Amino acid sequence: MRIQEGYYVLLFHSNRKKWLVKVTPQKKMHTHLGVIDVSAVIGMKYGSIIKTSEGKNVYLIEPTVHDFIMKSERKTQIVYPKDFGYIASRTGMQNGSIVLEIGTGSAALTTFMASIVKPSGHIYTYDVNPDFMAIARRNLEKAGMLQHVTMHQQDPHLGLDIREADVAIVDLGDPWTVVTEVHVSLKGSGAFVAICPTMNQLEKTATVLKQCGYTDIDCV
Rank of each mutant, 00 (worst) to 15 (best):
L11K: 01
T207L: 11
G188M: 12
W176V: 07
S89Y: 12
M113W: 04
T198K: 08
Q201P: 05
D161S: 14
R90H: 13
G92I: 03
Q211I: 01
Y46L: 04
I3N: 00
A136H: 03
A194Q: 05
I61T: 10
V167Q: 04
D127W: 05
F192M: 09
E181W: 05
S97F: 04
V41E: 04
T104L: 04
K28T: 14
S53T: 15
I195L: 14
Y59F: 14
S89C: 06
A107K: 09
V149T: 10
E203T: 11
S14G: 09
G159P: 00
A114K: 07
Y7W: 07
R137N: 09
K51G: 00
S185M: 01
T104K: 03
T31A: 00
G47T: 08
K22P: 00
V193L: 12
Q26D: 15
A143N: 09
K82M: 12
I162P: 00
Q94C: 14
M44L: 15
M133R: 01
E203S: 08
S39H: 13
A206K: 15
E203K: 13
G213A: 12
V38H: 05
M70A: 01
K71Y: 13
R2L: 06
H157Q: 13
A191T: 14
G105R: 01
M113H: 01
C219Y: 15
L209S: 10
I135P: 00
G188E: 14
S115D: 10
T205F: 10
V79K: 01
T91C: 13
